[in-house]
Write a protein that binds this DNA or RNA. Structure first.
Lengths: 197, 197, 197, 197
DNA sequence: AATGAATGAGGCTTCATTCAT
DNA sequence: TATGAATGAAGCCTCATTCAT
C-alpha cells in the first residue's frame, strides 16, 4: 500500500480550501468544511497550518509561487520590453483565468481586511509591481513608451486594468474565458504607453 | 416641540460604523462596538437596520448617492466628453480621497465576499460604469478617442486604473492626498484613449 | 413580577459553580455545566465573568470577604491575644466547616497550579497570616507565649495545623463536623506556644 | 549485546514529566511536551504508562518509595521516640527541599482534584501519618509527650506544620533552602508535644 | 422609540490516545 | 519496542439578534 508522499495531505487541504472558500467565502467556510472535503479529520488541519488564516495565506503563496516561476521562465527568452510586457499581460489573464475558484479567492476573498491586504500587498504584489515597472522603465529608456509619467505609476495603472478585468470576469456569470480579453487588454495597454504627440 | 429629525440616529449609526469598520474590518467590528460609538443601545441598531450587513450596504449607498448627486451636478454644465471624463476622473479621486475611513471601506472591506461584491457591482457600480461608458462612446463618436475598442471595455479599464490608485493610496502609510495624483491619472487616461496611429 | 435584584444572577452562577466544581473538580467542570445548574445560558456567564478562571477566583474572594468581615467583627471585642487566637482557630474551623462544597474548593481545587496558588497566597492568605502573626506577637510581648521563635513562623505553623485539619476533614468520608475538632486544635495550639521551660 | 535496562526509558519519562509539570502545571503540560523532553515519541509514553494521570501517580510513588526507604534506613538505628521524631522532621524537610521541581509537584500539582488527593491520601500519606503517629504514641507511653491529645491527631498536626513549611518554601521566590528551617520546626514540634503543666 | 440583559448556536482549536508501519 | 501522523471529541468563548420592560 503506497504511503502518501509527503505534502500530499497538505496539498489536499489547500485544494479543498480553495473550493470551499470560493463557494462560501472565507468567513462562511469553517475549518470542519475544509477538513471534510479534504478527507481528513479536523485536527489534521492543524498539523499543517497553525490556524485558519494561514490556510488562506498559503493558498495565495502557492499560487504566487507558480505565477512567479511561470513568469520568470516565459519572460527569460523574450527580446524586448514590448514582448515582455505583452507576455506579462497575457500570462496574468491566462493564469488568473485558469482556475476560477482560485481567482475568486485572489480577486475577492483576499481583500477582506486592511491588515490582510496590506500584508500581501507589501510582499508578493509589491514584487510583481516592481517587476512590471522595470519592464516599463526599459521601454521608456528605448524611447518606446511615454516618459512623462513615472514607470511605477504606469505599472500600477496597468495592474489596475488587469485586476479590474479579472474581477469583472469573476463576477460575470457568463461562461466566458478571461484569456479571451487578452487582445483587447494588450491593445489598450500598448496604446496607453505610446509617447505623447 | 421639535421632534428630532427622523434619521438623525440612523446617521449617527452609519458614522460610527464607518469609523469602526475602517479601524477593525467588517468582521472585526461588533454591533455592540458600533452602538457604543453611536451612543445608542445595541437593540436600537435593529430599529434602523435589519441586520449587520445592511449597515455596510447602507454605508455604501449613502456614499454612492452623494457621489452620484455631486457627479450629476458637476457634469451637467460641461461642454464635451473630454471635459466630462476629466471631471469624472478628478471627482472620483477627490471624493474617495476626502474620507479615508470611508475609502478603506469602499476599497477594502466591501470586497470581502463574492456574494456581496456581486450585489454591489450589479447595481451601483454598474450604473457608474455605464455612465462612464456613455461619455467614452460620445468621445468615440466625435472621433476624439480610439474606436477599435468597445466603450464598455474602455470604461472598465479606466475604472480599474482609478480603483487601483485609490486602493494604493489607502494602503500607503504615507500622508499623501489621493487628489494629488489626479493630473497623472488624467494624463494616463487621455493618452490611453487617443486614436491609434 | 419582581425583577431580580442586581447581582442575583451573579450569585446564582457562583453558587452553581461551587457545587459543580466541588463535585467534579475545576477541570472536570465545564462552563456549560455551571450555566445549566445556574439556570442561565452559557453566554450569560460571560456577562459576569471574563473567563472560566475568574469564576474560581470570585468564588474564593467572596468566601474570603465573608471570612474577613466575620473575623473583624468577632475579634473586635476580645480583650487579649489568647482570647483572640482561640477565636481565630474556632472561626477558621467553623467557617471552613460550614460549607463542605466550598471547603473542597478552598482545600483542594484552589491549589491546582503554582501560578494560581501563588497569586492567592500573596494576596488574601498573606493578609490572613499577617493578622495571625500580629496576635501572636502581641502574646509574645506580654510574655504569654514563647519568644524564641519568630511570630511569622509561628503563624505559619498554626495555619499549617488548621489547614491540615480542614483538608483531612474534607477528605474524610465520615459525616463528622469540622468544628468538633476545635477544642483539640485549641489545646494543641496553645500548648505549642507556651514559653520554653 | 547489553540490552538496555528495562525502565531506563521509563525513568527518562518520569524525569521529563517532573520538569515539565513543575514548570507548567499538570493541565498545562501535554503528553507531547513530556515525550519531547524525554527524547521519545509520543506513542512510546503509552508503552510505559496507560494514561497521562498514571505518569503523575508514578512520579509521586517513585518519590514516596525513596522517601520511605530512606526513612526506614535512617530511623532504624535511633534509640528513642524523641530522636526518631526529630529525624522525621529533618528528613521531611531535607527530602522535599532536595528537588524543587518535585516539591512543586507534591506541594501543588498533586492537590488538584479531590478524587486524586483522596486516592493518594488514603494510601501513601496515610502510611506516613501512621508511622509518625506510632512514634508519637511511643513518646506518650514514656511520659515524654502530652497524652491529653490523640497520637493520630498530633501526627496530623505535625504533618500540617511540615506541609505548610514546604508549601511556603515552594511559593517563596527567595532562594532559601527548606532545610534551613529544620531547627525552628523541630523546636516548634517538640515544644508543642510537651506535657501540659 | 429605546433599552440592554439575555440568549444559544456554532466556530476554532487542543490534545490524549491509537495504530499502521 | 518504537514511532509519530492522524484522529475526533469536546471545551471555551463570541456575538448577532431578540424581547420584556
Amino acid at each position: 500500500m503506497p504511503r502518501p508522499a509527503t505534502g500530499r495531505k497538505k496539498e489536499a487541504i489547500l485544494d479543498a480550501a480553495t473550493v470551499e472558500i470560493a463557494a462560501h467565502g472565507y468567513h462562511g467556510t469553517t475549518v470542519a468544511m475544509i477538513a471534510r472535503r479534504a478527507g481528513v479529520a479536523d485536527g489534521t488541519i492543524y498539523l499543517y497550518f497553525s490556524n485558519k488564516e494561514e490556510i488562506l495565506i498559503s493558498l495565495f503563496e502557492r499560487a504566487m509561487d507558480l505565477f512567479t516561476a511561470q513568469g520568470a521562465r516565459e519572460l527569460a527568452g523574450l527580446p524586448g520590453p514590448r514582448e515582455r510586457l505583452v507576455r506579462i499581460v497575457e500570462l496574468h489573464l491566462e493564469l488568473v483565468g485558469a482556475d476560477r475558484d482560485l481567482a475568486i479567492i485572489t480577486q475577492v476573498e483576499l481583500r477582506h481586511s486592511l491588515h490582510f491586504l496590506d500584508q500581501l500587498s507589501r510582499d508578493r504584489v509589491g514584487a510583481y509591481l516592481q517587476a512590471m515597472a522595470a519592464v516599463i522603465a526599459e521601454g521608456q529608456a528605448c524611447g518606446l513608451w511615454r516618459c512623462d509619467l513615472d514607470a511605477t505609476f504606469l505599472a500600477k495603472a496597468v495592474f489596475g486594468v488587469l485586476d479590474e478585468m479579472a474581477t469583472d470576469w469573476v463576477l460575470s456569470r457568463r461562461n466566458t474565458r478571461l484569456q479571451a480579453r487578452a487582445d483587447a487588454v494588450v491593445g489598450f495597454v500598448l496604446g496607453s504607453l505610446r509617447p505623447q504627440a
